[in-house]
Nucleic acid binder design. Structure first.
Lengths: 195, 195
DNA sequence: ACCCGTATATTCGGCGCCGGATATACGGGA
DNA sequence: TCCCGTATATCCGGCGCCGAATATACGGGT
């Protein structure tokens, strides 16, 4: 069986091992230090399964080094040539080809007609507030990173997220307004269904 | 154990059973007819496990009706009062509270520095092309739906997706331009690393 | 010297998800 | 009437993911 590009955590592992050999726990630490865990979901269980999978497909190699007992604790892994190739090819694909992601909010908003208009308005406004908090937090963080002299390329994904958050906020405020003054298409029916 | 709001497919099931009792296969058919499967990931395996989970938590009830053999094929389910409550509460939460989703593109773009600038530009432009296709397809669909006289509220999630696609396209063209003429922060280093 | 909370490093059991396999009914053509 | 492709309806085995459990080392306070 050929390696399946499911869990992006595997991509992070390949990227880390492209720098230098590491053991899984060290990978996790490094990801935390660099705030990568906010972009790629990380937990220990998945990390070890993903590493084992990469090893099975010979994208990485294991060199056991024991420390205190005689059992090999701290298994250190290194990337192989096919692993490097996989890293770059996967990365290209991830950027070039948009993937269907099924965002949960899309599912939610598609059923908003099930809520009474007044309740719908309330929850949409709550979401706007939450997004505003995220936006200010993100703006502060960007300010700080730029002040530290870090290049923009090092936090480019935050720049992207900022743009997307702003867009979502914009759409939400439009929808809230259209709900408030009943200009959203189908409003009369919507109100009638909830009396 | 209390019911866990993981798979949004369970929400779709509750919403369908809020209309009328159904058996799982019929739910799938209905979702397909209404193009709900483009918003909520649907496959038969998950559907039956999700239905069983809802049943176990008494959010829906089963009424077995046999057809030909003596085994109960076509098990018809109906929503309970707690099920209806769960539907509405879950829906509110889904809209009000933004959830961390870990979009794959964010992971990809965060590592774009691993690719040579020229290659990065290429794949970003490929993504723009792909998004353009999605955008025109979506515009055509919206035109058609509006022409059929369907209320906007019935396809509000497409309206949302349109806004988000446009925002992503905008950010990508900015990034492509900034890469092309080397104005993205950290470009000199980026180019140096790939000689 | 001893204790114990924290950091280090990995393992494990369970469970949800998925694609494919299974089984039966229906309907149109030779 | 018989055949077989399609539609109907569900089940099942495997696997990836996750959170909790496990085990050992380290270090500071008394």
């Amino acid at each position: 069986m050929t390696f399946k590009r499911t869990n992006p955590l595997a991509l992070a592992v390949l990227a880390l091992l492209a720098e230098r050999p590491m053991h899984p726990y060290e990978m996790a630490q490094t990801m935390r230090e660099r705030h990568q865990e906010e972009v790629i979901k990380l937990n220990y269980g998945s990390l070890y399964t993903v590493v084992e999978s990469l090893h099975k497909h010979e994208l990485i190699t294991a060199s056991a080094t024991q420390k205190a007992g005689n059992r090999p604790e701290r298994t250190v892994y290194a990337i192989t040539d096919t692993g490097t190739a996989e890293l770059h090819d996967w990365l290209r694909e991830l950027i070039a080809v948009p993937a269907r992601e099924y965002p949960r909010f899309e599912a939610g908003i598609s059923m908003v007609g099930l809520l009474p208009p007044h309740d719908a308005l309330t929850v949409v406004e709550q979401r706007v507030d939450a997004l505003d908090q995220q936006l200010t937090a993100l703006a502060v963080l960007l300010e700080k990173l730029a002040g530290m002299g870090l290049p923009q390329l090092a936090w480019i994904e935050l720049d992207y997220r900022l743009a997307m958050l702003r867009a979502e906020r914009g759409w939400l405020t439009w929808f809230a307004a259209a709900t408030r003054d009943g200009t959203v298409g189908g409003y009369p029916d919507w109100e009638d269904r909830h009396r």
